[in-house]
Design a protein around this nucleic acid. Structure first.
Lengths: 329, 329
DNA sequence: TCCAGAAACTTGAACGATCCAATCCTGCCT
DNA sequence: AGGCAGGATTGGATCGTTCAAGTTTCTGGA
């Protein structure tokens, strides 16, 4: 077994001092070209890798980013996180960071975990997925000047902290315009109870698109908790009361329920979901697709901007979704 | 801002030496009860947390476990990994370890990543999901005495390294027996091309269950790459050629395709999938369910067994799946 | 040729924990 | 009372890196 290769080994091999090797790695421009080459050759020849623990001890930086992994709730929307995490890991890697996972069952415990991760592992930053009005987590992190980004806008104040989000309103608006373009006039919306930022945003897109087209949305809107059964129930109600010719839903779960409600009753009704989950692809459901890989990449961009010395407040990023057309609309 | 709390701060506060504090943390039994209490009080009062980087530098152990996160392929089976990772993070946390993510596009690059993770971060162990015949990754790790567990058997030699797996044959056998019990006799199987350990295993369960019931499986078996369209194609073929009354599939993707093929043709045909993915739950597909949380927990058990000094070779773990009954069977 | 100033490189110290070996108690026995 | 065994406690060294400060080498202008 090969003995450990440290910076001292490399220094000896290249006949320079430890510090010069360190400079080649961290500040190449202050080392003469010829020397640098010699050191780099030694590094390659010996297969040297900088020990992260030692580096961290001195610099206080771990090059680690934390992200939370949730239990798949109703399951359908879980895959969004899955895809986001993959993108995050890939981009972080390219930027020289790695992603550490954590879980938490509620906000208090999550905050306790922050303390642990920061104290024990000296994490450099956090990526939070999803925020709500008055989120205690972002407040806690901001109070302590811990770098973090959220995937999802801070609904209280858009300049509260760096964020990346997908324009949900634009997504539902696009879906609605697509339906209008196909000749539909009675386009319903099934969404979530008012008060959640994401839900209100998606609702607004539908309403605004109808207004813009001179269509009155009154009576065409229903709200409920997320779920397949809930979507089915509300769609049945819509079919009976206002007989829409199409429906836009705030999630694929709701859309799937809506599909089940119309099957056998009026298969002509068009349905569009939200999130472009695997389920949507599987059943041929047209759905609004979020650029998750891109979102993850921009999260890493914002973080590295903050971490690698850029002192300007980073600009939030709002990405545009696209419509994945399938045969339900 | 509070200044940093180190082991020296705690020692001063409790009027003992650094070493005594260290002993309280790492070998409590050798410290007198009264002293230990005083130290623990100081730790709590100061909110001290052992710095992982410093500890790691001395001990060479990072308390970090690596797991790979894949891009969701056709999407449906991705959620399996998702759920497994969540379980892994939770159990590892309880055991004092954290999970670090990595990605890789092929075996060579994955092995290069191992080198990087080991050299730079001094990872303690790896968890690999899925293995194949002659897997170069496990060989590489075993050659270097890097602790690792696989979720999935080493198909070449069952004692090659520690593993946790779910008994796929038992799953398809159970599904088949369920169908037999419901009166079906012509039970088909749609699986993957011969040669993959997992696929062959699932096929065997179906075949053996039929044999045991005195039913001849000849002609009732089809194989293809995984995918919804593929499942649909083979199911159409089966319906035309052998007209089965039920079908067991090697994955939910295939089962979903099969469902689409029978819709409108012969809705009476029963279908059972494999993996109990969210899609299955969403469309009401009966499916073989793997105990993923349990599997993840056992992976951590095996690893901590190896890492925390247990020198016996750990016993592999084979878990039993269960059948999630829904309305397709 | 000489010298100032910059550039290139070297040396000592520090980060915060654990390990090791030496010392200090404490209680017990004679 | 003295000695001794054993456990509890202590100080010093160490892990591999970067920071801060010091020393040598190079460059160019008078």
């Amino acid at each position: 077994m090969a003995e450990k290769v440290t910076i001292a080994t490399v220094a000896r091999h290249a006949r320079v001092s430890r510090q010069t090797v360190s400079n080649v790695l961290n500040a190449p421009h202050i080392v003469r070209q010829e020397t640098r080459q010699r050191v780099e050759d030694a590094i390659n020849a010996l297969g040297y890798r900088a020990n992260q623990a030692a580096r961290q001890m001195r610099t206080g930086r771990s090059r680690l980013i934390a992200a939370r992994i949730d239990p798949t709730r109703d399951g359908i929307n879980g895959s969004v996180l899955d895809r986001f995490l993959h993108g995050l890991t890939e981009t972080a890697d390219a930027a020289g960071y790695r992603v550490l996972l954590y879980t938490a069952t509620d906000d208090d415990r999550e905050i306790a975990t922050y303390g642990d991760l920061l104290g024990t592992y000296e994490l450099d930053a956090f990526v939070l997925v999803g925020t709500k009005y008055g989120d205690p987590r972002t407040t806690w992190l901001a109070d302590r000047d811990v770098p973090f980004v959220t995937f999802g806008r801070p609904w209280d104040a858009l300049d509260a902290h760096p964020w990346v989000d997908v324009d949900g309103a634009a997504g539902t608006a696009q879906a609605t315009r697509h339906l209008l373009g196909a000749g539909h006039q009675r386009i319903a919306f099934i969404g979530w109870p008012a008060g959640s930022g994401v839900g209100d945003d998606r609702l607004a897109g539908w309403r605004d698109a109808l207004h813009a087209a001179g269509v009155d949305p009154t009576g065409l809107h229903r709200e409920t908790e997320d779920g397949i059964a809930e979507g089915e129930r509300l769609m049945r109600d819509l079919l009976v009361t206002v007989a829409p010719s199409a429906v836009v839903c705030a999630s694929d779960s709701l859309a799937l329920g809506a599909l089940q409600a119309i099957r056998g009753v009026d298969p002509q009704v068009s349905v569009i979901g939200f999130d472009d989950t695997p389920v949507a692809a599987a059943v041929g459901l047209t759905s609004v697709s979020q650029p998750l890989g891109e979102a993850a990449a921009r999260c890493v961009d914002l973080l590295t901007g903050v971490l690698d010395g850029d002192h300007e407040t980073p600009t939030p990023v709002l990405l545009q979704p696209s419509l994945a057309l399938r045969h339900t609309a």
